[in-house]
Structure formats: structure tokens, C-alpha cells
Design a protein around this nucleic acid. Structure first.
Length: 342
DNA sequence: AAGCTTTGCAACCGCGTCCGT
DNA sequence: GACGGACGCGGTTGCAAAGCT
């Protein structure tokens, strides 16, 4: 592409922000709201480029940001989500509304990577959170299937998402499972060969966090209407009963009901005002409503090319049939794959 | 106490995507 | 459909603080 820098080199200040600059920026945003970052430097007189202003706001000045001291639960969540989503920090951050993507990214790179390395060193394979040790998300992603070594991220995600949707549908439609999803130890079996982990408090359920994508993406999956499904299709308007059930399952799988995520998720599912395109998700709000799983976890993320197949709305019955056919075959492999972790 | 190394984090950079024209 | 501006994301860098010798 070869785009020139977003701002002219001369006259643009770089480096750490001063308190004075912070005050100017905050007061401007309090008055005008975030967004239209291009106009911020000119309107405020700040010698900063628009990007820098946006970054400073979203990563530091925005209200409600929690800094430092990641709790154990947050750690776990990040680890799981990283395993699930790869290095999609914005998506991960959407599950931790008080944390910024940058913060999470830094924490991962500085703390969690090492921590996991240490954990993996003595007993490899037992609690492999998904990586090769050098651990980027991309690498993690390659573990999805040995049969698809080099594919786009969206394909890997799609594979997992589809499988999870299949499973969910299968289970939702089978009467005997309706009453005991929470006790179903097979619930979260995954098509991937990625690692799984146990949470002591979750009744020995597999806590594979694919369920998170399942929770939210499943909704989108059936209401698919293109890349904006999150805001258009699922923002509380989902009529899919499974969504409630799956959402609960997601929470129970995490064992994180007490986390802010829960309340946040609740908030978002009852919020119908999120009309911004999902790529605006963490910037056009003072609150963090749109920093929600519903926004972020479409089958395809905003930055990725979206395969056409998903763009079209398939008749539900057709989809249903397809899912059920497939899930039967895949369960066999999956259970086999997962079984070795127990 | 001084110098060196490591760590942690704020900020920057480049690229991809979206969206209006 | 092509183009360009604006925005968002993830990787990387730079520097201050902390730790170590």
C-alpha cells in the first residue's frame, strides 16, 4: 500500500504524555466525546497526531480502566482466551472490560508467557495452554489441526466455531441433554487438538474456552448477516433460546461468574443501542458496553476477510441438518483427542 | 555506591479494514 | 468498482524503574 504516516513528522510531538496534555485531551473528550480523532489535535491544539490521542485515551485516560495487579481470575481468563483467540488482544480485552488490549498484551508478553513456559517445562502436554512455547497466537492457531498447516486465521477460527456450533446445536436439540448441559462432561470437547485445562471448581468439566466463542458466536452463526452481525444481529435481539443456555454454560465453564464479564455480558445482551460497526468497538464509548463478547466474537473478526459462505444466510433447517450430520462424525475424533487429556 | 542487566509498560509504527465519495 | 481518508489492531520499540553484581 505504502501509505504515508498518519501525521506529519514535523511539529508532532512524540513520547510520553505530560499531565497537561492529558488534561487537555480529557477535557476535550468530556466535551465532545471520543471519536473523530482526526479533529482532536487541531481542536485541542495538542501537538500530537490523532492516533496518539486515540491511543492515549483508550489505553490510559478512558474512565473505568483498571491498571496493574491482574487477579488470578483475570490471568486465567487471559490465558484461556489467548488460547482460544490467539493474539487478538482487542477481542480478549472485550472480555475484560476494565483492561485495555494494550495492557493485556503487555501482561501476556511480560508475565504470562513466562509463567506458562515454566508451567509447561516440567510436565509438557498436561496443561499446554496452546502454544509452542514461543507462543504467538498464530502459532497457537496452527495447532488447531495438523491437516491444515497454513491457513488463514479466519479459517482456523471458522473450523473451531463451526464445530462448536454444531455441538451446541446437537446438544440443544437432543432432549436428554437439555436438562443437564451443566453436567455434561463432554460439552466442551473440541475439534481442535489444542490443549485443554481443568478448573478445580468446575466439576471437572473441560474448561476449554472455545465455549466462549460458542456462546456468542453461536448466536451470530445463525443470524449471520455479514460482518456486522454482532451489532445488528445479536445485541440482545437474538431469539435463539440456545444463546441463553450457552451463555450460562460459558460462564459456568469459566467459573467466573463473579467477574465483571458476567455483568458486562448481561449488560450487552440487554443493550440494543450498539449500532456502531464492530471495528469501532472500543472507542466510541465512555462506558464499556461495546467491549463485549457480542461485539467481538463474530465468527470473523473485523480485520479479517470474510469468506462468502458465511455472508449468505442459510436456511436454518439446512444448516441444522448439515451441522448435525457433521457433528456426529467429528465427535468421534474429538472425544478421542480430548480423552487423552483426562 | 556505582555500573550493568533485566523487566515492565507506554507509546509508536505499519498494515488491514471500513466507509464515504 | 476504484479511491482515499479514518480508524483499529497487533507487533515492536524505547525508556525508566527495579534488580543484581
Amino acid at each position: 500500500m505504502g501509505r504515508p504516516p498518519c501525521c506529519d513528522k514535523e511539529g508532532v510531538k512524540k513520547g510520553p504524555w505530560t499531565p497537561e496534555e492529558d488534561i487537555i485531551l480529557v477535557s476535550y473528550i468530556q466535551e465532545h466525546g471520543p471519536g473523530n480523532w482526526r479533529a482532536v489535535p487541531t481542536n485541542t491544539g495538542l501537538s500530537r497526531c490523532s492516533k496518539s490521542c486515540r491511543l492515549r485515551w483508550t489505553n490510559y485516560l478512558r474512565p473505568g480502566i483498571k491498571r496493574g495487579n491482574f487477579t488470578e481470575q483475570e490471568e486465567k481468563m487471559i490465558i484461556h482466551l489467548q488460547d482460544l483467540l490467539g493474539n487478538r488482544w482487542a477481542a480478549i480485552a472485550s472480555y475484560l472490560p476494565q483492561r485495555t488490549d494494550n495492557d493485556i498484551k503487555n501482561y501476556w508478553n511480560t508475565h504470562l508467557k513466562k509463567k506458562l513456559k515454566k508451567l509447561q517445562a516440567p510436565s509438557s502436554g498436561v496443561c499446554n495452554f496452546g502454544g509452542t512455547g514461543t507462543g504467538t497466537g498464530i502459532e497457537t492457531g496452527t495447532n488447531y489441526s495438523g491437516s491444515i498447516p497454513v491457513r488463514g486465521q479466519w479459517e482456523r477460527r471458522l473450523q473451531t466455531d463451526i464445530h462448536m456450533a454444531k455441538r451446541a446445536l446437537s446438544e440443544a436439540l437432543s432432549p436428554e441433554n437439555n436438562n443437564n448441559n451443566s453436567n455434561n462432561n463432554n460439552f466442551c470437547s473440541s475439534s481442535s487438538t489444542k490443549a485443554i485445562t481443568h478448573h478445580p471448581g468446575t466439576n471437572n468439566k473441560c474448561s476449554r474456552t472455545n465455549s466462549s466463542s460458542l456462546t456468542t458466536q453461536n448466536n451470530n452463526f445463525f443470524v449471520v448477516n455479514g460482518g456486522d452481525t454482532a451489532s445488528k444481529g445479536s445485541g440482545g435481539s437474538s431469539s435463539n433460546d440456545n444463546s441463553v443456555e450457552l451463555s450460562e454454560t460459558f460462564e459456568s465453564l469459566f467459573g467466573l461468574e463473579s467477574l465483571d464479564y458476567s455483568s458486562n455480558a448481561t449488560t450487552t445482551t440487554t443493550t440494543t443501542t450498539t449500532t456502531t460497526s464492530d471495528h469501532d468497538h472500543d472507542h466510541d464509548q465512555f462506558s464499556h458496553q461495546s467491549l463485549s463478547p457480542n461485539d467481538e466474537n463474530n465468527v470473523f473478526q473485523e480485520n479479517e476477510s470474510k469468506p462468502e459462505i458465511i455472508e449468505d444466510v442459510m436456511p436454518f433447517s439446512l444448516l441444522e441438518k448439515w451441522l448435525l450430520e457433521e457433528v456426529a462424525c467429528q465427535d468421534q475424533k474429538v472425544i478421542t483427542a480430548d480423552a487423552k487429556f483426562f
